[in-house]
Each structure stands twice: as structure tokens, then as C-alpha cells.
């Protein structure tokens, strides 16, 4: 254990932040551009996919999840899983209501 600098965490360099920044700007451009083209069902899917990719970049690099402890990574995964349960099971009810009773 190197004693004095023990609490100096890994410092992310501004280049990484800048790269993420540029990628995010490109993502915004792409989202707006795509929304003005008729892609049918893929319009919302593409928009959400870009948003998720952007969020992923921010979470991993800007928020340093990549360098975080396993506990943090696991908690984030766990919360996203439960969020998907909330979305998925509520939608399941609404979707299958249209089928009527059996």
C-alpha cells in the first residue's frame, strides 16, 4: 500500500470528459435529425436507444462507474432491474387488458 497518496483516486483526464461531451453532442444532433425522418416504429426506439447510449456514456465515464467499486456497479444494476420490473409488469397489465377476459 503506497501510504501518502492512498486516498488519491484514479483521476479521469479532461480528454475523456471532452470525448464524452462530443459524443453527447453528436447524439443530440442524431436524435433530432432522426426524428424528422419517417422510420415508422423505429422512431421512438432509435430515440430511446440513443438516450440510453448517452446515459451509459455519462454513467460509465463522467460519473466514473467504470472505476467504482463492485458494490456500486451491482447496486446500479439492481436498481435498473427493478425499474424494468416496474415498467414491464405495469405494461403487461395494460397491454393484456385489451385482450378482454377469457
Amino acid at each position: 500500500m503506497s501510504e501518502p497518496n492512498h486516498n488519491e483516486r484514479h483521476i479521469t483526464s479532461p480528454t475523456v470528459y471532452f470525448a464524452v461531451y462530443v459524443a453527447l453532442l453528436a447524439g443530440v444532433g442524431l436524435t433530432i435529425l432522426a426524428s424528422y425522418h419517417n422510420l415508422g416504429i423505429f422512431n421512438p426506439i432509435l430515440a430511446l436507444a440513443i438516450s440510453i447510449a448517452q446515459a451509459g456514456l455519462v454513467v460509465l465515464f463522467t460519473m466514473h462507474l467504470k472505476d467504482s467499486s463492485k458494490a456500486t456497479v451491482l447496486s446500479v444494476g439492481c436498481a435498473l432491474f427493478i425499474l424494468m420490473i416496474l415498467f414491464g409488469m405495469v405494461f403487461m397489465d395494460y397491454y393484456s387488458r385489451a385482450w378482454g377476459s377469457w
Partner: peptide
Amino acid sequence: FGLYWHFVDIVWLFLFPLLYLINRH
């Protein structure tokens, strides 16, 4: 604080396409 601020940013990254960009073509 940075974590918090980035999180607020992420929320907006979802709000923007969901609210502004419905069926624009």
C-alpha cells in the same frame, strides 16, 4: 455533487426526445 449534476443531465437526455420529438416527420 458532480454525480448529482450528471444525473439531472441524464434525466433531461430522456425527457427531451420523449416530450419534444414525438412524430416530427
